Simulated scan of single mutants.
Amino acid sequence: MTSRSNNSRRGASKSKTTGKSAGVSLPNWAWLLAGLVIGVFAAFLAGLTPSAKDVRTVAEQVKSSSGDDKKTDHQPVFDFYTLLPESEVTVSIAEPAAVATKTQSSKPDQKPAATTTSKPKKYLLQAGSFRSAKDAERLRAQLLLEGLAPRVEKVSVGGGETWHRVQLGPFADRVSLQSAQKVLASQNIDSLLLQLK
């Protein structure tokens, strides 16, 4: 009788075990982790949708800009056609000292005092020009970290606009000018070479 009862128990326990293996059983921490991931994803999606306040603000801006367009004629205004020729500076690529020695050797009758009385040319490097003072200060701080000494110059141009120019210099010698240009080029900053009058 004991062997029958053991067999019946074994059979009963086997049927219970097979029932459990048929269903998916995950530990509690897995369910918690899955719920957390789904919650974070839902919060991310909710953050992507604009709120009603944002939609109203954009709609008001569109209405105000369309109202301004009706008041003005639809002709665009381009001031750079007049501003660029006025601020154009021609800079020679040759080194100023080399040009002076070439002129002395080609004309021996010329007095050497004429070349010594002329002032050495000074140059500025303009790293950027911004309407926003914050942008100009950001570039200035970046250049300070690179070991340069930039300054921000506030300039008013035609039409009453104010621009903030980030400039380096003045440079009297070519070596310091070229080293500053190399630093700007390493930072992917295009510079504009300006000659001081």
Rank of each mutant, 00 (worst) to 15 (best):
K119L: 14
E88H: 15
T115A: 07
T103G: 02
Q104V: 09
P108S: 14
D73W: 09
Q126W: 01
Q104N: 13
E86F: 04
L139N: 01
K121S: 07
T82D: 13
P76K: 07
F80D: 06
V91R: 01
T101D: 15
L143W: 01
Q104E: 12
A149C: 05
E86G: 12
T115H: 05
Q142A: 06
T90P: 02
P112L: 05
K63H: 07
F130K: 02
A100P: 03
S105W: 03
D79C: 06
E95V: 08
V77F: 10
D73P: 09
V58W: 09
S105P: 02
E95R: 02
P96Y: 00
P76L: 11
R56W: 04
D109F: 06
V152Y: 05
V91I: 13
T90G: 07
T90K: 02
V152E: 04
V62I: 15
P76R: 06
K122D: 07
K107M: 11
D69E: 15
Y81F: 12
F78Y: 14
E137W: 01
A133E: 14
S156Q: 15
A98T: 12
L144A: 06
D73N: 15
I93K: 00
A133I: 05
A97F: 10
P108F: 03
V99N: 02
S132I: 05
F78M: 14
V58M: 08
Y81A: 14
Q110N: 10
P85A: 08
S66R: 10
Y81C: 10
F78L: 13
R151I: 10
V157I: 15
D69T: 13
E161M: 06
P150H: 01
E161L: 06
R56I: 10
S87Y: 10
E88A: 07
L143D: 00
Q126D: 07
G158A: 15
P76I: 04
S132G: 14
G67P: 02
Q75T: 15
S156E: 15
E86I: 04
R56G: 12
R138C: 00
T101P: 03
D68K: 09
A97M: 13
K71F: 03
E88Y: 09
V62W: 02
V152C: 08
A114C: 07
Y81T: 15
V91M: 02
K107V: 07
S105I: 06
L124E: 01
R140T: 02
L139F: 11
G159M: 07
V77A: 04
Q142H: 02
L148C: 11
Q61H: 04
E86Q: 15
G128S: 03
T101G: 08
T82L: 10
R151C: 01
Q104H: 07
A141E: 03
T103I: 11
E146K: 13
K121R: 10
L84Q: 12
F80C: 11
V91S: 01
A149M: 09
P150L: 01
V77P: 00
E146Y: 07
G147A: 04
K154Q: 14
P150M: 00
A59T: 14
A98Q: 14
R56F: 08
